[in-house]
Amino acid sequence: MISIEGLSKVFTSNKSSVTAVENLDLNINDGDIFGVIGYSGAGKSTFVRLLNRLEEPTGGSIKINNEDITAMTARQLRIARQDIGMIFQHFNLLWSRTVEDNIAFPLEIAGVAKMDKQKRVQELIDLVGLSGKEKAYPSQLSGGQKQRVGIARALANNPKVLLCDEATSALDPETTNSILDLLVDINKQFGLTIILITHEMHVIRKICNHVAVMESGKVVEQGEVMDVFLHPRQHVTKKFVEQVMGNGEEDENIHGLTEVYTEGEIIRLHFIGETTNQALISQLAKNYEVEINILQGKITQTQAGAYGTLIVQIAGNELDEAVRFIKEKSSVEMEVIQDAK
């Protein structure tokens, strides 16, 4: 459990002072994948760097498993940091060391014996899927491979917490997905708590269980990812949700749809988590004598299940029964846009 109370960071220069993080309270459960999203300048990067005191907090406290990070002496902090892994946007590998020596670096710092070190390095290389690249230098690797080295290095001392500072922001979408998959694997396999900073809602959607939205140094909205997706309250959150779901443009086209498809009923289905396995459309088609025509929609997967809307046209003899089934037996919310009868 990570509990953060009243955390603040003020940068002071000669003439002015800037509040990067302001009186921030947050609780993060063990084994959670917790996302923090915000635009650049929102203070999210400063926030994650406060957690291991790469930036010294101006006020407030951070407790990780009841150990007060903020009260530690320099020596205690060094030991505590060995339990907090961190990965970075630009990987921050040592170019002068090979893949295996980069991964061995935190083990050297922790004073692990040579034999154990070699064994652990090999385990980590296998874990992140870099077998055969042991002797390569970072300059010979692609971005995704570099981040895998970064992850292996961060995990070397079996940390309980992994901090990800924009870890996928320098990667292309496909590589981002493979790195995110790796993070989920690690989270499941070792029960590691992951705190992830990003400006891409896609990343939150794909792997996070909880999310906090930051704006000008404050958390303006937080909760389960699904809830935030469904009921974004703040303007900034709505903008982020639109990144993934598109904006309201499609609603404008509905009039067009209703003019073209005049038969039966046009229905909007809202998929809100956990319904993926139900195969609603095919159930309807099998059990009732109806034709279903998918007109438009977007569905996306989150850690809590599918989320999105689908606009369908249903027509046929058992239309009413089919509609009743959706309403009463499924967890999909529905809304009739046009009734042709």
């Binding site: 790469l54 902090l77 907090i84 710092i109």
Partner: peptide
């Protein structure tokens, strides 16, 4: 910074 974060 990465080295510091590892407790060096």
């Amino acid at each position: 910074e990465a080295a510091k974060a590892m407790g060096a």
